[in-house]
């Protein structure tokens, strides 16, 4: 799939994007470019608009002005371009959002079969491959309700991988997990990061950011306040707001 897009265009390019909820200005003049294969971590206090921003990238939220270009296709009202972009952009949610009435395997093969028209046997083989990658193949025939939170989140990661997306979005993937389950999910994410896929992660896991991020973005009150490589970001942040935030999350 990677070959269908010219490699010289950036994965995601956001230019002067604004987003309003009624009168509330949720995202203010966002500029962001993510290159192919880049790992970007987005952090910031709650309500700062980080989730909204990445949800705009696969149009779970509609932006009000500005431009979003994903893999060279502009995201606008054209239904075909929205469908095309969603096929190439996977997303992992805070609350997993697995389909509770389907087994793990059915969850994984659903989209490839419906959207990519992959034959069932082939889709199942691919699904098993990805379930092994997230180290959970033995649970393939169980229902999501029978799994722990960490296991469910790993299934959710495998499910989005089954669409072989060019870009993966993570929307606070560990926030809803019990503490002892966070590391099993982070391990899988670290492993994924080594494979060259573009990843944009909204997360509070600063350790993860330090280890895998090429770039860390700090958002506050709907704006991108700071944008730097992890070294600079954690050692010598330029903005006071960043310093304050870091002292709060790393403080003790």
């Amino acid at each position: 799939m990677a070959d269908t897009h010219p490699t010289n265009v950036p994965a995601v390019q956001i230019n002067g994007m604004n987003k309003f909820y009624g009168h509330f200005h949720a995202l203010k003049n966002i500029h962001l470019t993510v290159h192919r294969g880049e790992k970007v971590v987005v952090c910031g206090p709650s309500g700062s608009g980080k989730s909204t921003m990445i949800r705009c990238i696969n149009r779970l939220e509609e932006h009000n002005s500005g431009q979003i270009t994903v893999l060279g296709t502009e995201l606008n009202d054209d239904v075909a371009s929205i469908d095309g972009i969603r096929r190439e952009v996977g997303m992992v949610f805070q609350h997993f959002n697995l389909f509770p009435h389907m087994t793990v395997l059915e969850n994984c093969v659903l989209a490839p079969m419906l959207v990519r028209k992959t034959p069932r046997a082939q889709a199942e083989a691919a699904a098993m491959r990805y379930l092994e990658k997230v180290r959970i193949p033995e649970q393939a025939l169980k229902y999501p309700g029978q799994l722990s939170g960490g296991q469910q989140q790993r299934v959710a990661i495998a499910r989005s991988l089954c669409m072989e997306p060019e870009i993966l979005l993570f929307d606070e993937p560990t926030s809803a997990l019990d503490p002892e389950m966070i590391s099993e999910v982070l391990d899988v994410m670290v492993h994924l990061a080594s494979e060259g896929r573009t990843m944009i992660c909204v997360t509070h896991e600063m350790g993860f950011a330090r280890r895998v991020a090429d770039r860390v973005i700090f958002m506050d009150a709907g704006e991108i306040v700071e944008e730097a490589d992890p070294e600079t970001f954690f050692q010598s942040p330029s903005s006071d707001r960043t310093k304050q935030f870091l002292s709060q999350v790393l403080g003790h």
């Binding site: 696969n58 779970l60 469908d83 969603r86 096929r87 952009v89 996977g90 997303m91 949610f93 959002n97 697995l98 389909f99 659903l110 989209a111 419906l114 959207v115 959710a156 499910r159 989005s160 669409m163 979005l169």
Partner: peptide, 8 residues
């Protein structure tokens, strides 16, 4: 949303 994100 999950289904939309999968392109369904």
């Amino acid at each position: 949303e999950a289904a939309m994100a999968l392109g369904i």
